[in-house]
């Protein structure tokens, strides 16, 4: 069990990390970055897996199953579109 205050510290440090990581991003990467951060919260999938994994009633299973479907969609879709966008960024110095 993560203690209340430890959790608070994790939240605070993670928030600063997120802020700092983005603060230096050029505008040209905003769309891929939004897409990329969208992919990162696809980690919700593993939470959905755990939720479904210990489901006991059929209602819990249904909700958990929907959560897994949605979470997998978030992760996979987020990855594929981000990768597709970033793949296209080329520098003229390498022959564009």
């Amino acid at each position: 069990m993560i203690e209340g205050f430890i959790a608070l510290y994790i939240f605070m440090l993670a928030a600063f990390t997120g802020y700092e990581v983005i603060a230096r991003v050029p505008v040209i990467l905003h769309t891929p970055l939004m897409s990329g951060s969208n992919f990162v919260h696809g980690i919700v999938l593993i939470g959905a897996m755990v939720a479904l994994g210990h489901a006991e009633t059929s209602v819990e299973r249904w909700v958990g199953f929907i959560a897994v479907v949605l979470g997998a969609g978030n992760a996979v879709g987020g990855y594929v579109v981000t990768e597709r966008m970033l793949e296209m960024f080329k520098s003229s110095k390498r022959g564009g």
């Binding site: 994790i10 939240f11 993670a14 928030a15 997120g18 603060a23 951060s37 990162v40 980690i43 919700v44």
Partner: peptide
């Protein structure tokens, strides 16, 4: 009780707010 979710979620939360 899953730190991976906490960290990834909050990092995106903060980054997304700034964005």
């Amino acid at each position: 009780d899953n730190p991976a979710l906490m960290i990834a979620g909050v990092v995106v939360g903060a980054a997304g707010t700034l964005l």
